[in-house]
């Protein structure tokens, strides 16, 4: 298969810290799709978690990452919408504002880096659709997950704020739905799909963040989805790792497996659950795994 152009792979902080299953499955799936990844050397936090303290700090941190990719002459691919959103916003801001660019470059000069504005940044959802293409994805599916009913949560930072990210309509996000349908699974709609997961207030006010998780899970449950599909490490933590906290706090049972999209696609590609990091998930995904294992691969 012809290779999809080289990309610099930006991991961010949350994935290596807590969400290996996303990284494991993404690397596997991208390899199957013949995507060439180059690891970003000495990268740093994208800057988003520190924006409440200083916007300028965020600009410097994200510009530093972009400048590293520019030094290597490669576009950036991220798994986390928070990272891609932040890098995209900075990229746009510095390209459009010459004096801001000069100011930030003044800081980067200290360490031999320069922001030029010569590369672009994409989240994996946009990358899969624009660069890999739905045709290639559909061709890679040898076990169409027909009959499996899933819901999605795209996450706010994939498309908000609309004015800066210019990706898709945040009020009616389609990318993840289209990608889910490419695996053969059925997409199930539910109430308040675009509601925030609350990750950014976890640690500030857990009652609020867990109430948001609870509401989402209960809407998904009423819609009859068998799993929730995410493409953001922070949203995933909220719905998977924190699902048990919600169950304890509100004395309710949900038992909704939460899969990274890359795990769902991996299953449809016929990759084994072990190779996709399924054993790292907190909510037992065995129902879904069993379902996929029983599908006969089409050759």
């Amino acid at each position: 298969m012809e290779k999809v152009g080289k990309y610099m792979f930006f991991l961010g902080c949350t994935i290596p810290y807590r969400v290996s299953s996303y990284e494991i499955s993404a690397r596997k799936v991208l390899q199957r799709l013949s995507v060439d990844l180059v690891e970003m050397p000495e990268f740093n936090c994208c800057g988003l978690p520190l924006e409440p303290l200083s916007h300028e700090l965020t600009l410097i941190l994200s510009a530093r990452n972009i400048a590293i990719a520019e030094r290597e002459g490669l576009n950036i691919l991220t798994l986390c919408p928070g990272c891609s959103g932040t890098l995209k916003k900075t990229n746009k801001a510095l390209k459009e504002d010459k004096s801001l660019k000069e100011e930030i470059n003044g800081r980067l000069k200290e360490v031999g880096l320069e922001f030029k504005g010569s590369v672009n940044v994409k989240h994996i959802s946009q990358f899969l659709i624009d660069d890999v293409g739905l045709d290639r994805i559909k061709k890679s599916v040898i076990k169409p997950l027909r009959g499996l009913k899933v819901s999605e949560h795209s996450g706010c930072h994939l498309s908000r704020p609309r004015k800066y990210l210019e990706f898709e309509d945040p009020e009616n996000p389609k990318a993840l739905k289209t990608l889910i349908e490419a695996t053969g699974a059925k997409y199930v709609e539910y109430m308040d799909e675009t509601e925030c997961c609350g990750a950014t207030v976890a640690g500030i006010d857990d009652k609020i963040s867990l109430s948001l998780v609870r509401e989402k899970l209960s809407h998904i449950k009423s819609a009859g989805a068998e799993a929730l599909i995410t493409m953001c490490p922070s949203c995933h933590i909220m719905y998977d790792a924190n699902q048990i906290r919600v169950e304890r706090m509100f004395k309710e049972t949900y038992n909704i497996p939460v899969l990274h999209y890359t795990q769902l696609l991996g299953l449809a590609m016929g990759i084994s659950p072990e190779e996709l990091g399924f054993d790292e998930l907190r909510v037992n995904p065995s129902k879904i795994v069993k379902y996929a294992m029983e599908i006969k691969p089409r050759l």
Partner: peptide
């Protein structure tokens, strides 16, 4: 400090 920076309001 409770703002979740979800940008719904901005949009």
């Amino acid at each position: 400090w409770l703002c979740a920076s979800c940008f719904t309001c901005t949009d």
